[in-house]
Amino acid sequence: MKHQEASLRVVSASPAPTAADPAEAPPVVDILSAEKVFANGMRGLAPIDLTIRQGEFVSLIGPSGCGKSTLLKLVANLHQPSDGRIAWWRGDFRRVGEAGRRLAFVFQDPTLMPWARVDANVRLPLDLAGVPRAGAAPRVAAALEQVGLGRHGRHYPRQLSGGMRMRVSIARALVTEPNLLLMDEPFGALDEFTRNKLDDDLVQLSWERQLTTVFVTHSIYEAVFLSTRVIVMAANPGRVFHEFAIDEPMPRGDAFRGSARFAELCRGLSAVLTEASIASQRRD
Protein backbone atom coordinates (compact mmCIF):
# COMPACT_ATOMS: atom_id res chain seq x y z
CA MET A 1 0.00 0.00 0.00
CA LYS A 2 2.72 2.42 0.97
CA HIS A 3 4.67 1.55 -2.09
CA GLN A 4 1.69 2.20 -4.30
CA GLU A 5 1.04 5.61 -2.90
CA ALA A 6 4.63 6.54 -3.40
CA SER A 7 4.46 5.50 -7.03
CA LEU A 8 1.25 7.47 -7.47
CA ARG A 9 2.93 10.66 -6.41
CA VAL A 10 5.27 10.12 -9.30
CA VAL A 11 2.34 9.59 -11.65
CA SER A 12 0.73 12.81 -10.54
CA ALA A 13 3.95 14.78 -10.59
CA SER A 14 3.35 16.18 -14.06
CA PRO A 15 -0.09 17.76 -13.42
CA ALA A 16 0.90 19.05 -10.00
CA PRO A 17 -1.31 21.79 -8.54
CA THR A 18 0.35 25.04 -9.53
CA ALA A 19 -2.50 27.56 -9.56
CA ALA A 20 -2.02 29.65 -6.45
CA ASP A 21 -5.22 31.67 -6.10
CA PRO A 22 -7.85 28.84 -5.91
CA ALA A 23 -6.27 27.79 -2.63
CA GLU A 24 -6.96 31.26 -1.27
CA ALA A 25 -10.67 31.32 -2.23
CA PRO A 26 -13.13 31.02 0.67
CA PRO A 27 -14.40 27.50 1.37
CA VAL A 28 -17.90 26.59 0.20
CA VAL A 29 -18.06 23.09 1.61
CA ASP A 30 -15.93 21.72 4.42
CA ILE A 31 -16.14 17.97 4.88
CA LEU A 32 -14.77 17.39 8.36
CA SER A 33 -13.99 13.74 9.12
CA ALA A 34 -17.38 12.81 7.75
CA GLU A 35 -18.00 9.08 7.51
CA LYS A 36 -20.96 6.96 6.56
CA VAL A 37 -21.89 3.58 7.97
CA PHE A 38 -25.06 2.17 6.43
CA ALA A 39 -27.87 0.58 8.41
CA ASN A 40 -26.66 -2.89 7.39
CA GLY A 41 -23.27 -2.18 8.98
CA MET A 42 -21.48 -1.61 5.66
CA ARG A 43 -18.90 1.11 5.78
CA GLY A 44 -19.80 3.34 2.87
CA LEU A 45 -17.24 6.03 3.60
CA ALA A 46 -14.20 6.09 5.84
CA PRO A 47 -13.70 9.48 7.53
CA ILE A 48 -13.07 12.01 4.80
CA ASP A 49 -11.58 15.48 5.04
CA LEU A 50 -12.08 17.67 2.03
CA THR A 51 -12.51 21.36 1.37
CA ILE A 52 -14.20 22.65 -1.74
CA ARG A 53 -13.48 26.29 -2.45
CA GLN A 54 -15.38 28.95 -4.27
CA GLY A 55 -15.19 28.69 -8.05
CA GLU A 56 -13.76 25.18 -8.07
CA PHE A 57 -15.06 22.47 -10.37
CA VAL A 58 -14.39 19.27 -8.46
CA SER A 59 -15.00 15.86 -10.03
CA LEU A 60 -15.38 12.71 -7.98
CA ILE A 61 -14.34 9.59 -9.87
CA GLY A 62 -13.60 6.04 -8.82
CA PRO A 63 -14.62 2.39 -9.13
CA SER A 64 -18.22 1.50 -8.28
CA GLY A 65 -18.85 1.25 -4.56
CA CYS A 66 -16.24 3.87 -3.73
CA GLY A 67 -18.93 6.10 -2.20
CA LYS A 68 -18.69 9.03 -4.61
CA SER A 69 -22.48 9.29 -4.86
CA THR A 70 -22.78 8.89 -1.10
CA LEU A 71 -20.29 11.70 -0.57
CA LEU A 72 -22.25 13.92 -2.95
CA LYS A 73 -25.48 13.15 -1.09
CA LEU A 74 -23.82 14.07 2.19
CA VAL A 75 -22.87 17.41 0.65
CA ALA A 76 -26.48 17.82 -0.56
CA ASN A 77 -27.73 17.02 2.95
CA LEU A 78 -29.79 14.16 1.44
CA HIS A 79 -27.94 11.83 3.81
CA GLN A 80 -26.49 12.66 7.20
CA PRO A 81 -22.97 11.56 8.08
CA SER A 82 -22.73 8.80 10.72
CA ASP A 83 -19.87 10.70 12.28
CA GLY A 84 -17.99 13.92 11.64
CA ARG A 85 -19.75 16.85 10.07
CA ILE A 86 -20.15 19.02 7.02
CA ALA A 87 -20.12 22.79 6.92
CA TRP A 88 -21.62 24.93 4.16
CA TRP A 89 -20.12 28.39 3.85
CA ARG A 90 -18.68 27.77 7.30
CA GLY A 91 -22.17 27.30 8.75
CA ASP A 92 -24.75 24.56 9.12
CA PHE A 93 -27.37 23.53 6.61
CA ARG A 94 -30.14 25.73 8.00
CA ARG A 95 -28.56 28.76 6.40
CA VAL A 96 -28.32 27.15 2.98
CA GLY A 97 -30.90 28.73 0.68
CA GLU A 98 -30.14 32.30 1.71
CA ALA A 99 -28.87 34.71 -0.91
CA GLY A 100 -25.35 33.76 -2.00
CA ARG A 101 -25.71 30.33 -0.38
CA ARG A 102 -28.01 28.53 -2.75
CA LEU A 103 -27.49 24.88 -3.54
CA ALA A 104 -28.88 22.89 -6.46
CA PHE A 105 -28.70 19.20 -7.26
CA VAL A 106 -28.89 17.49 -10.64
CA PHE A 107 -29.72 13.80 -10.50
CA GLN A 108 -28.51 10.94 -12.63
CA ASP A 109 -31.93 10.85 -14.32
CA PRO A 110 -33.75 13.99 -15.37
CA THR A 111 -36.41 13.28 -12.64
CA LEU A 112 -38.96 15.57 -14.25
CA MET A 113 -42.66 15.57 -13.47
CA PRO A 114 -44.16 13.84 -16.54
CA TRP A 115 -47.53 15.52 -16.04
CA ALA A 116 -46.11 19.04 -16.14
CA ARG A 117 -44.90 21.04 -19.10
CA VAL A 118 -41.23 21.92 -19.38
CA ASP A 119 -41.70 25.45 -18.05
CA ALA A 120 -43.70 24.21 -15.06
CA ASN A 121 -40.96 21.66 -14.33
CA VAL A 122 -38.32 24.39 -14.37
CA ARG A 123 -40.51 26.62 -12.21
CA LEU A 124 -40.93 23.94 -9.53
CA PRO A 125 -38.21 25.11 -7.09
CA LEU A 126 -39.56 28.67 -7.34
CA ASP A 127 -43.13 27.42 -6.74
CA LEU A 128 -41.96 25.48 -3.71
CA ALA A 129 -40.27 28.60 -2.38
CA GLY A 130 -43.48 30.58 -2.85
CA VAL A 131 -42.22 32.88 -5.62
CA PRO A 132 -45.24 34.47 -7.39
CA ARG A 133 -45.93 33.29 -10.96
CA ALA A 134 -45.35 36.69 -12.51
CA GLY A 135 -41.94 37.02 -10.92
CA ALA A 136 -41.01 33.45 -11.78
CA ALA A 137 -41.86 33.56 -15.49
CA PRO A 138 -38.89 35.64 -16.70
CA ARG A 139 -36.49 33.61 -14.57
CA VAL A 140 -37.85 30.36 -16.01
CA ALA A 141 -37.54 31.76 -19.53
CA ALA A 142 -33.97 32.86 -18.85
CA ALA A 143 -32.99 29.46 -17.44
CA LEU A 144 -34.49 27.67 -20.45
CA GLU A 145 -32.73 30.07 -22.79
CA GLN A 146 -29.48 29.34 -21.02
CA VAL A 147 -29.70 25.61 -21.73
CA GLY A 148 -30.85 26.21 -25.30
CA LEU A 149 -34.47 25.21 -24.81
CA GLY A 150 -36.05 28.64 -25.08
CA ARG A 151 -38.64 27.40 -27.56
CA HIS A 152 -39.61 24.21 -25.75
CA GLY A 153 -41.30 25.58 -22.64
CA ARG A 154 -44.77 24.39 -23.64
CA HIS A 155 -43.69 20.83 -24.44
CA TYR A 156 -44.13 17.84 -22.18
CA PRO A 157 -41.01 15.95 -21.07
CA ARG A 158 -41.99 12.87 -23.09
CA GLN A 159 -41.85 14.92 -26.27
CA LEU A 160 -38.15 15.65 -25.72
CA SER A 161 -35.04 13.57 -26.34
CA GLY A 162 -32.91 12.26 -23.46
CA GLY A 163 -30.36 15.05 -23.86
CA MET A 164 -33.07 17.71 -23.92
CA ARG A 165 -34.66 16.29 -20.77
CA MET A 166 -31.30 16.49 -19.03
CA ARG A 167 -31.07 20.13 -20.16
CA VAL A 168 -34.48 20.77 -18.58
CA SER A 169 -33.19 19.22 -15.38
CA ILE A 170 -30.18 21.54 -15.48
CA ALA A 171 -32.43 24.55 -16.17
CA ARG A 172 -34.47 23.59 -13.12
CA ALA A 173 -31.26 23.65 -11.08
CA LEU A 174 -30.12 26.98 -12.56
CA VAL A 175 -33.41 28.79 -12.07
CA THR A 176 -32.71 29.28 -8.38
CA GLU A 177 -29.36 30.91 -9.32
CA PRO A 178 -27.36 28.47 -7.23
CA ASN A 179 -23.89 29.15 -5.95
CA LEU A 180 -23.12 25.49 -5.38
CA LEU A 181 -24.12 22.98 -8.06
CA LEU A 182 -24.03 19.27 -7.25
CA MET A 183 -24.31 16.82 -10.13
CA ASP A 184 -24.56 13.05 -9.79
CA GLU A 185 -23.43 11.53 -13.11
CA PRO A 186 -25.86 13.73 -14.97
CA PHE A 187 -24.80 12.73 -18.49
CA GLY A 188 -24.10 9.05 -17.83
CA ALA A 189 -27.05 7.80 -19.86
CA LEU A 190 -26.39 9.96 -22.92
CA ASP A 191 -24.54 9.17 -26.12
CA GLU A 192 -21.02 10.57 -26.39
CA PHE A 193 -21.86 13.27 -28.89
CA THR A 194 -24.64 14.71 -26.72
CA ARG A 195 -22.48 14.35 -23.65
CA ASN A 196 -19.62 16.36 -25.18
CA LYS A 197 -22.03 19.11 -26.17
CA LEU A 198 -23.49 19.29 -22.67
CA ASP A 199 -19.99 19.26 -21.17
CA ASP A 200 -19.06 22.24 -23.36
CA ASP A 201 -22.13 24.12 -22.22
CA LEU A 202 -21.52 23.24 -18.59
CA VAL A 203 -17.96 24.55 -18.71
CA GLN A 204 -19.16 27.80 -20.24
CA LEU A 205 -21.97 28.13 -17.73
CA SER A 206 -20.03 27.44 -14.58
CA TRP A 207 -17.29 29.79 -15.76
CA GLU A 208 -19.70 32.63 -16.58
CA ARG A 209 -21.58 32.26 -13.32
CA GLN A 210 -18.56 31.53 -11.16
CA LEU A 211 -20.32 28.42 -9.89
CA THR A 212 -18.80 26.03 -7.44
CA THR A 213 -19.51 22.56 -8.78
CA VAL A 214 -19.13 19.04 -7.44
CA PHE A 215 -19.54 16.51 -10.23
CA VAL A 216 -19.70 12.72 -9.95
CA THR A 217 -18.70 10.88 -13.12
CA HIS A 218 -17.49 7.58 -14.51
CA SER A 219 -15.80 9.15 -17.48
CA ILE A 220 -12.08 9.98 -17.38
CA TYR A 221 -12.41 12.34 -20.36
CA GLU A 222 -15.30 14.18 -18.78
CA ALA A 223 -13.48 14.57 -15.47
CA VAL A 224 -10.36 15.96 -17.15
CA PHE A 225 -12.29 18.23 -19.47
CA LEU A 226 -14.54 19.80 -16.84
CA SER A 227 -12.57 19.91 -13.62
CA THR A 228 -10.19 22.21 -11.92
CA ARG A 229 -9.57 19.37 -9.47
CA VAL A 230 -10.17 15.63 -9.81
CA ILE A 231 -10.63 13.50 -6.72
CA VAL A 232 -10.03 9.80 -7.25
CA MET A 233 -11.78 7.59 -4.73
CA ALA A 234 -11.30 3.93 -3.81
CA ALA A 235 -13.72 1.44 -2.29
CA ASN A 236 -13.77 -0.91 0.74
CA PRO A 237 -14.16 1.39 2.55
CA GLY A 238 -14.93 4.42 0.41
CA ARG A 239 -12.13 6.95 0.72
CA VAL A 240 -10.18 9.63 -1.09
CA PHE A 241 -7.39 7.80 -2.86
CA HIS A 242 -5.70 10.61 -4.67
CA GLU A 243 -6.40 14.04 -6.07
CA PHE A 244 -4.87 16.27 -8.66
CA ALA A 245 -5.43 19.65 -10.21
CA ILE A 246 -6.12 20.34 -13.88
CA ASP A 247 -4.69 23.80 -14.32
CA GLU A 248 -5.92 24.41 -17.85
CA PRO A 249 -7.51 27.87 -18.09
CA MET A 250 -11.30 28.22 -18.40
CA PRO A 251 -13.39 28.23 -20.45
CA ARG A 252 -12.25 25.13 -22.25
CA GLY A 253 -13.39 23.84 -25.61
CA ASP A 254 -12.60 21.46 -28.42
CA ALA A 255 -9.08 22.87 -28.68
CA PHE A 256 -8.33 21.47 -25.21
CA ARG A 257 -10.15 18.23 -25.93
CA GLY A 258 -7.99 17.65 -28.99
CA SER A 259 -4.68 18.67 -27.41
CA ALA A 260 -1.77 16.41 -26.53
CA ARG A 261 -1.92 17.76 -22.99
CA PHE A 262 -5.51 16.54 -22.65
CA ALA A 263 -4.47 13.05 -23.79
CA GLU A 264 -1.57 13.08 -21.36
CA LEU A 265 -3.81 14.11 -18.44
CA CYS A 266 -6.31 11.39 -19.33
CA ARG A 267 -3.54 8.81 -19.41
CA GLY A 268 -2.35 9.96 -16.01
CA LEU A 269 -5.84 9.82 -14.51
CA SER A 270 -6.44 6.43 -16.07
CA ALA A 271 -3.30 5.06 -14.42
CA VAL A 272 -4.36 6.40 -11.01
CA LEU A 273 -7.83 4.90 -11.49
CA THR A 274 -6.32 1.50 -12.22
CA GLU A 275 -4.34 1.75 -8.99
CA ALA A 276 -7.50 2.80 -7.16
CA SER A 277 -9.47 -0.18 -8.39
CA ILE A 278 -6.67 -2.55 -7.38
CA ALA A 279 -6.60 -0.93 -3.94
CA SER A 280 -10.37 -1.32 -3.75
CA GLN A 281 -10.15 -5.10 -4.10
CA ARG A 282 -7.32 -5.60 -1.59
CA ARG A 283 -9.32 -4.64 1.48
CA ASP A 284 -11.92 -7.35 0.95
Binding site: L78, G97, L103, F105, F107, M113, L124, P125, L128
Partner: peptide, 11 residues
Protein backbone atom coordinates in the same frame (compact mmCIF):
# COMPACT_ATOMS: atom_id res chain seq x y z
CA UNK B 1 -35.71 11.20 -7.13
CA UNK B 2 -38.54 13.72 -7.27
CA UNK B 3 -39.26 13.09 -3.62
CA UNK B 4 -35.62 13.89 -2.80
CA UNK B 5 -35.89 17.00 -4.94
CA UNK B 6 -38.93 18.15 -2.99
CA UNK B 7 -37.21 17.44 0.30
CA UNK B 8 -34.08 19.27 -0.78
CA UNK B 9 -36.16 22.31 -1.66
CA UNK B 10 -37.69 22.22 1.80
CA UNK B 11 -41.19 21.47 0.49
Amino acid sequence: GLLSFFRMNKA
